[in-house]
Design a protein around this nucleic acid. Structure first.
Lengths: 348, 348
DNA sequence: TTGTATGCGTTATCAT
DNA sequence: ATGATAACGCATACAA
């Protein structure tokens, strides 16, 4: 592999001069500039970023720690991060890690010397334990609880979104509204449950434990929970699933059971994944700007990196938006847009 | 940040000894071993991987170049890569890049010195131009064409899968079978089209250009293409969408048009995303083992890295499998499995 | 068994 | 405007 030394020798210049040319630092004559650039091009020299970052103590890489994420959420949040990172000349070092203290700690250790900061998503973990991580590098928490202001974080407006969806169902006249909950110990799930309960109380309805079914964010869980709800003596008239995947599973179960949606059972989801509007009936949901979530996390982190981790911590949250479609019977048919060719997809 | 020097000073030993202890290289007395480990733990010392890789000339990181991918495919292929990488002590440096020569080249340049090898996915690019990349590092091509054996590659059995799906439709008695194509210039899309045509010819059916509609792998494209097909004077009786997203869009369009599936129109997809079985009706599709795709790519790359890029090139392909559900009318109802709690999802 | 010294590829400091 | 050289943090050949 050709190094800066080789270039210097070939150009009959010192490595210092070559370095100056390449980084635009310090003065160089127009002639040597041309000469060196010519040699660099001819020899196909590419600087070794590892060596560079050793002396500059900047890797221009940010670490990303994610739990097992599926589907649209994963790809979209990474897209938001990568777009923002690239725009600022940064790379993404991505690692999936168990969302517990040990997993996160191990992963962050392994990243020492290869990243300038870390965005960590650990929805199952309360961030208390992250506070005393052996780390002086900037960290941003994604979708995690964090009491106190010791650490930057960015979350979804789960509570507000869920409350709005439940309120929407109530406004349609529903009294018995079930919820299919997300994973236990998951922060997003807990907040959505809280929002649901709050909306009920707002309307003077006492939450019924029988109408709060366990789930884990998968289609299978939604399918099975819906069947359980149908088996109830006093059936609900509406189901709020804590995410769209479970809502889709529930729709499937209702269909097979011959239950008309929304006439006999209204169904609402959360996330508003692209597929939601193509369901039968089109699924009402709470839209989550996932791209922004990733983008803001990186922006926040870059701020911390710039200020060498000596900055005022921030807690941001991206706002949700209620999207009403036919599955709740709240609105007439919404037609999908006629052929928008912006998503350059590749298989799936 | 505490370095190996600090540890050495604190332990009153030389850096060489500390290094030996940490790497298990060379002989060390049991006592100093204990002492140094104690100091390392107390000072919370973590080796600087950047510095280490400069001297060992191994970064233990593999670069991943991906185009704009959406949904399940993106997350699943990365999962396969990360699982395999971690199992071998490697990290993933992920970068989205334009799928053309310049984009790939730029990205690979930027990765010099931070990765030991690169997995590049550029379905729109014919790999010819990649051959003369200024790179001596191992490269594995994902889902790309590559004539000759100059470069490792791993692809999907698109041709065979598409041919099987089309043959399945033919076996059900369909004569007029339409296809909603994938993106132009996309290798997977081209192969699936080829398989479709081959199956028709096998059955003595002449492919009708009117039945080959453009698409781009999005739900919107499938929706719009289905409407166009319905407007035809001589309608098809079956639609084969080059991926599931388009098939789902098509299902939505058919539903709104009052067309019964599969009675009036059979629909088949490709990829078999998890949602496929929850559609109405459940979607027949061609299963693609996406995780294996990523896993094999990394395995192949690690092989190249181990052999310092001086190895026999391989061209592997992951095999597909026809999954028949109700949308083609080929099989009775398949019930989703009762609550499999293995997918620990997080919002979406 | 342990220590000294050199070098990995680059940037930065100080001369010239 | 250019060059010599130290330093970044670590591993390792060689010496002791």
């Amino acid at each position: 592999m050709v190094t800066i030394k080789d270039v210097a020798r070939e150009a009959k210049m010192s490595v210092a001069t070559v370095s100056r040319v390449l980084n635009g630092s310090g003065p160089v004559s127009e002639e040597t500039n041309r000469l060196i650039r010519e040699v660099v091009g001819r020899m196909r020299y590419v600087p070794h970023s590892g060596a560079r970052s050793l002396i500059t103590s900047k890797t221009e890489t940010i670490g990303v720690l994610l739990p097992d994420l599926y589907g649209e959420f994963f790809s979209e949040v990474i897209r938001g991060m990568d777009d923002t990172a690239q725009r600022n000349g940064y790379h993404l070092l991505i690692s999936r890690a168990y969302a517990d203290r040990h997993g996160i700690e191990t992963a962050i250790r392994a990243m020492r010397g290869r990243v300038d900061g870390v965005v960590a998503m650990s929805p199952d973990l309360d961030a208390e334990s992250l506070l005393n991580l052996p780390s002086t590098i900037p960290i941003v928490l994604l979708c995690s609880v964090s009491r106190g202001n010791e650490i930057d974080s960015i979350t979804i407006q789960n509570f507000r979104g869920a409350r709005e969806m439940a309120a929407h169902l109530i406004s349609l006249g529903h009294k018995r509204i079930a919820i299919i909950k997300g994973s236990v110990r998951n922060h997003d799930a807990a907040e959505r449950l809280r929002g649901y309960r709050m909306a009920l109380r707002d309307a003077g309805i006492t939450p019924d434990p029988l109408l709060e079914r366990d789930g884990d964010f998968t289609e299978a869980a939604g399918y099975s929970a819906a069947l359980q709800l149908l088996a109830l003596k006093k059936r609900p008239t509406a189901i709020f699933a804590a995410n769209d995947s479970m809502a889709i599973g529930a729709l499937s179960a209702l269909r097979e059971s011959g239950i008309a949606v929304p006439e006999e059972m209204a169904v609402g989801g959360f996330d508003d994944i692209p597929l939601a509007r193509y369901m039968d009936p089109p699924l009402s949901s709470v839209h989550v700007p996932i791209w922004e979530l990733g983008a803001k996390a990186v922006t926040l982190l870059l701020h911390g990196i710039t200020h060498k981790n000596d900055h005022a911590r921030r807690r941001e949250r991206v706002s949700t938006k209620l999207v009403i479609r036919r599955s709740t019977g709240g609105e007439p048919a919404e037609r999908p847009p006629p052929q928008t060719l912006n998503r350059e997809k590749v298989s799936v």
